[in-house]
Design a protein around this nucleic acid. Structure first.
Lengths: 155, 155
DNA sequence: TATTGTTATACTCTATAACTATA
DNA sequence: TATAGTTATAGAGTATAACAATA
């Protein structure tokens, strides 16, 4: 190994870097696109305090009233341990209600409160507007194609 | 507000929950798919200690020798402050080298070391195998379509 | 034994603010 | 003033291990 002082390198041409092998990796584009959408989601929902993951939990509860944390976590790919804080946050916000589950004294039956249903609809309309803006250059066919391809990855 | 003990709820039918409105949100499928790919990436690269983000940094340096941290960060959407630990990690691992940049005493010119190029090629072949496995049910056309659609989101 | 919810804990990635040394 | 790198810090998401109560 050479420990001598390294030679200086001429300044780069700048402008924009070559993407290199990353451009061929679907995982890279997936990660970037997911980040772009998440950032825009944050801007669109600013003020509500809603984030992507808690919204997904609320949406699963809305679509499956009476379900429990474990089932929601399995459906969304969220670990049981991490569901605790998420459901706590939603119950503290008055969105989700916990009730004792019949026939299983370990579990809680989850459902949206009346106020939660109102908030959820408001969030949903803002989220649809956010997606409409973000995908305004996509044709309905392109949106459907993208969704179908992504769904095949196990979402 | 009713503070009385809530009524029990009958147990759910289980099996699999209804996706509800989430199924129509591209952002949701993007997030799930990105997570699935990231998890598989982790399994495929287990033992190397390589992760998606540091790999992307190494790939940008490989494709743009002599560039600096700021340029790589801008290209990848990573904040300057967060680039520091990433480049430190790669230099500590002997993958990336910092040399003084000619004409700008603030910046470092980044490049892969000889050993780094060897490691990078090994990682890349494992990553290509991981993507080939994960997208084995996708036709080349479907992969190209997915990549093209994702690229349009700003990645 | 397995499941439901829980606590504790750690790691990764991302974000902002403020500082330095250069330009 | 602006830029390149840095430090400090915080928030969000995810991961594992272990426990109590229940099945």
């Amino acid at each position: 190994m050479d420990t001598a002082s390294p030679d200086p390198v001429p300044p780069e041409r700048e402008s924009a870097l070559a993407p290199g092998v990353l451009d061929d990796l679907i995982g890279y584009h997936l990660r970037r696109a997911s980040g772009v959408v998440a950032a825009d989601f944050g801007r669109a929902l600013a003020g509500t305090g809603v984030r992507q993951v808690p919204f997904a939990v609320a949406a699963m509860v809305a679509a499956n009233p009476g379900t429990n944390q474990g089932a929601v976590g399995r459906a969304l790919g969220i670990k049981r341990a991490n569901m605790v804080a998420l459901v706590n946050e939603l119950t503290d916000a008055g969105v989700v209600e916990r009730r004792p589950a019949m026939g299983n004294r370990r579990a809680f039956a989850l459902s949206l409160s009346a106020a939660g249903r109102v908030m959820f609809e408001e969030w949903m309309s803002r989220i649809l507007a956010h997606e409409d803006g973000l995908f305004s250059t996509f044709t309905p066919d392109e949106r459907a194609t993208l969704t179908a391809l992504l769904r095949r990855l196990g979402g």
